[in-house]
């Protein structure tokens, strides 16, 4: 299997604060990896550093075999191959939904307008947002905005999708619509690296779950093992807190 993402002994930080302390990670073609871990453990930093939205200190990152951290690499070319979905959606509020999705095609890829339009409509249909194409982001619910953000990442035909807590800014009743879209995308065979604490979702889509704490990977394995029989005490304690929250929600279902 070809490696879509290969991270070797990566160190990342801000100022003199070390946040990622020697992480290695591999994602093969079509593989879906979920990252979990407590707040501040460095999950967002890890995702950002893969496409150099945060500059890594040392280590190696390869995407599709290309050395991302080499001086010769055109990082913009790499970013075009890697979709990024943020916790806070980050759509461009001054553009319609359709323009948001067309923008990277027209501006970055230089596609002609009619072609960009056709593709944009296609992905908007995929995430169930076609009928909202002329709305502006701030006129939509959080769940709808996040689906557009997913469409905007997908429209570039990425070989890898990085998702940073795509549902944690959403009210519980809006989460499922986004998770359903992601399940659907997962079924299409695209490689994904997802930070999420949605246990059911992780169990459904993940080939592997990586548990991070304090800048280290402290445990990883298939969902059946990591979610049901964690070996490390820290993992178990963390899962217990999430499960408690989840149980509180389920009580009212």
């Amino acid at each position: 299997m070809k490696d879509v993402l290969l991270v070797k002994d990566l160190y990342v930080g801000y100022g003199d604060q070390e946040v990622i302390r020697g992480i290695s990670l591999r994602i093969t073609e079509g593989e879906r990896v979920v990252i979990m871990g407590p707040s501040g453990s460095g999950k967002s930093t890890l995702l950002k550093s893969i496409v150099r939205l945060v500059e890594p200190w040392k280590g190696e990152v390869y995407i599709n075999g290309v050395n991302v951290l080499s001086d010769e690499v055109d990082i913009r070319k790499i970013r075009q191959m890697v979709g990024f979905v943020f916790q806070s959606y980050n759509l461009f509020p001054h553009m319609t939904v359709l323009r948001n999705v067309m923008l990277p095609l027209e501006v970055v890829k230089g596609l002609p307008k009619d072609e960009a339009l056709k593709k944009a409509i296609g992905v908007l249909r995929l995430v169930g947002m076609e009928e909202y194409k002329d709305r502006y982001p701030l006129q939509l619910s959080g769940g709808q905005q996040q689906r557009v953000a997913i469409a905007r990442a997908l429209v570039m035909d990425p070989i890898l999708l990085l998702l940073d807590e795509p549902t944690s800014a959403l009210d519980p009743e809006l989460r499922e619509e986004v998770l359903d879209v992601l399940r659907n995308i997962a079924g299409r065979g695209i490689s994904m690296l997802i930070v999420t604490h949605e246990l059911d979702f992780a169990e459904d889509v993940a080939d592997r779950i990586v548990f991070m704490d304090n800048g280290f990977v402290i445990e990883e394995g298939p969902p059946q093992e990591l979610l049901y029989k964690p070996k490390i005490d820290r993992t178990r304690r963390f899962l217990r807190t999430i499960a408690r929250r989840l149980y509180a929600v389920n009580r009212y279902r």
């Binding site: 950002k48 496409v51 939205l53 913009r76 070319k77 790499i78 970013r79 075009q80 890697v82 979709g83 990024f84 943020f86 806070s88 980050n90 759509l91 461009f92 923008l103 990277p104 501006v107 970055v108 953000a149 905007r152 990442a153 570039m156």
Partner: peptide, 21 residues
């Protein structure tokens, strides 16, 4: 800052980010 981040993540250049976003 998040507006810059998401524009960068799409592969836009600094000029494109200022011009369009």
């Amino acid at each position: 800052e998040t507006q810059y981040l998401s524009a960068e993540s799409l592969g836009m250049s600094t000029f494109q980010i200022y011009r369009h976003v």
